[in-house]
């Protein structure tokens, strides 16, 4: 029996090499080749991240890797884990998700949840001006990946710019934008080390979450033995490996930046406090809005995730 696993990253991406390919190998070994996973990378079974959730629900693929952020209405509670400044690392965030799974699992009711993890908070790559304090960010055109970060960049005095990730390399090179906010693993993927002079690593910024979901009826069709084997190899165990793979890819991105002569900056605690102070009102508003739309106590959810 062969399960089709679809994702939209290149097959050399850390998520394929560090999570999906090892899962396929382990499952193959654990079931003596009775149950296997075939990976279809690069959007071979369908273009782009937007429809990944739909693809798994409708059975275009048996298993999909995807990003909750791309279907924000479906995963608005999960998205609370993205709240900037909550977690220092993707591993912490991943534990928080699994410790509080009962609060968010209704968002995964249409599928079988195999994995849910986070990467490390975004770093800020700047073209020719270092950012050490909020003041340094004034008037900077910054490519931001999502609406929340856009609001924060505004609150910090920057100018949020939206563009596809693949265009950021050119935009940084020519000066269309002054800076880009991106998960540290993106440095290597998009070669942003070639375009920046500075990278600030610890601004209280958002992280992204990722899922590995299985089609319900594909899951139901498995024998009890195969279900047990797959359960052993997924869940929190697989998710932590996802977070670890992102951590390593992020470190390797920062190393690459250092090697290319990019100055790595860490802001001090005073600057950190100032960033947090300036973003507080915006964040509260955002959490209120999600709470109203979903009819849940979003602040309580954020507190639970943060372990308060």
């Amino acid at each position: 029996e062969e399960l089709k696993l679809a994702h939209f990253m290149p097959s050399m991406h850390p998520m394929d090499q560090g999570v999906m390919t090892p899962l396929a190998e382990q499952l193959n070994a654990a079931t003596d080749g009775e149950l296997t996973i075939r990976i279809y990378p690069s959007g071979e079974l369908g273009k782009g991240p937007v429809q990944q959730y739909k693809r798994v629900v409708t059975g275009v693929a048996d298993i999909v890797f995807g990003i909750p952020e791309y279907t924000p209405n479906q995963f608005s509670k999960t998205a609370m884990v993205h709240i900037p400044g909550l977690f220092a690392s993707g591993t912490d965030a991943t534990h928080a998700l699994w410790d509080n799974l009962e609060l968010i699992e209704d968002e995964y009711a249409q599928t079988k949840l195999l994995g849910l993890w986070a990467n490390n908070p975004s770093v800020l790559l700047t073209r020719d001006k270092p950012v050490r304090t909020v003041a340094d960010m004034q008037g900077m055109k910054i490519r931001t990946p999502n609406p929340v970060m856009a609001e924060l960049v505004k609150a910090w005095g920057g100018i949020p710019v939206s563009m596809p990730t693949t265009d950021t390399y050119n935009a940084m090179n020519t000066g269309v934008i002054d800076a880009v906010m991106i998960g540290p693993s993106g440095i290597r993927s998009y070669k942003l080390n070639e375009t920046a002079k500075y990278v600030t690593t610890n601004i209280p910024s958002a992280l992204d979450s990722f899922y590995l979901l299985m089609n319900k009826s594909s899951w139901d069709k498995l024998s009890d033995e195969h279900k047990a084997k797959l359960t052993d190899l997924t869940g929190r165990y697989l998710s932590l490996r996802g977070a670890q793979a992102f951590y390593e890819a992020g470190q390797s991105g920062l190393d690459l930046a250092r090697e290319s002569g990019v100055e790595v900056i860490e802001i001090d605690s005073a600057a950190d406090a100032e960033f947090r102070e300036k973003m507080k009102a915006t964040l509260d508003q955002f959490i209120d809005k999600v709470g109203q739309e979903k009819g849940v106590d979003a602040h309580a959810l954020v507190d639970a995730l943060a372990g308060n």
Binding site: L45, Q51, G59, V60, A61
Partner: peptide, 15 residues
Amino acid sequence: GFQAAAFTLSGQVFA
């Protein structure tokens, strides 16, 4: 399978 083909058809066009 049919379901997957149906979603691939419209999904790819839309994408």
